[in-house]
């Protein structure tokens, strides 16, 4: 498919999200305009405090902007209700976190099934699908283990499987390799690239590591809450 013909799946205009601090200052993002096309692998770069996670949170429907607009897949998230945002999080995006964020009292398999169950799917069908995802990621044998019994890499792969269970068109990853060693980090990044290249999903990664660079189709750099640079990559 030709990417250049695809319409923008993520559009933001003057997107602003400010958190006031007690000492009078503020953090967040300001006046961001963003266009990400369908099927891109966008990498958002920036240092700590640059606003990467804030931007990702807004795209993922986990937060609301203070000002501006953001439209994802034709849906205006700015005016969406809390219930609509909840449904959006269930079905349209899949999230992968730096801290893995697996629920410690659920097994790996149960963690993977969770978004589907929340979306109203039956357990039996979901279980099948979850096992398939785990198999594809090579960790099928760990299905009945609790997160405390998994290594960092295994946890993140489970998290990826979880992100995919509802077949989202967009996958968001917030510092996915931040808590992994370099070998596991590479594995995870390749998996994410795979989602983009083979499965055609739009993948957005916020990271300050260089592991994502080879796979990115577009790079966006944030500094102090604003876009400093937007570099379309070759391709």
């Amino acid at each position: 498919m030709s990417r250049s013909d695809d319409p923008c799946v993520i559009e933001a205009h003057a997107l602003t999200r400010i958190y006031p601090l007690e000492n009078g200052g503020a953090v967040g993002i300001r006046d961001i305009d963003l266009y990400i096309r369908n099927g891109e692998m966008a990498v958002i770069k920036g240092n700590s405090g640059s606003g990467k996670s804030t931007l990702l949170a807004l795209i993922g429907g986990l937060d609301r902007p203070s000002r501006g607009r953001i439209v994802v897949g034709g849906r205006d998230l700015t005016t969406a209700s809390a219930a609509e945002l909840t449904a959006y999080r269930r079905t349209t995006v899949g999230m992968v976190f730096q801290a893995f964020n697996l629920l410690p009292t659920l097994t790996a398999l149960e963690n993977v099934c969770l978004p589907a169950l929340l979306a109203g799917m039956a357990y039996e069908t979901t279980r099948e699908s979850a096992l398939n995802h785990l198999r594809e990621l090579g960790i099928e044998k760990l299905a009945d283990r609790y997160p405390a019994q998994l290594s960092g890499g295994e946890m993140q792969r489970s998290a990826i499987a979880r992100a995919l269970i509802n077949n989202p068109s967009i996958v968001l990853a917030d510092e996915p390799t931040g808590n992994l060693d370099s070998r596991n980090g590479e594995i995870v990044m390749r998996l994410l690239a795979d989602l983009n290249q083979r499965q055609g999903r739009t993948v957005i990664v916020a990271t300050h590591s260089a592991l994502a660079d080879p796979y990115a189709t577009v790079q966006i750099t944030l500094r102090d809450g604003m876009i400093a640079q937007r570099t379309p990559c070759n391709g």
Binding site: V27, T54, L62, D63
Partner: peptide, 12 residues
């Protein structure tokens, strides 16, 4: 509890 607390956002 806001969903965004799932992500560590400094200062928030």
């Amino acid at each position: 509890i806001a969903p965004k607390e799932a992500m560590i956002i400094h200062g928030s």
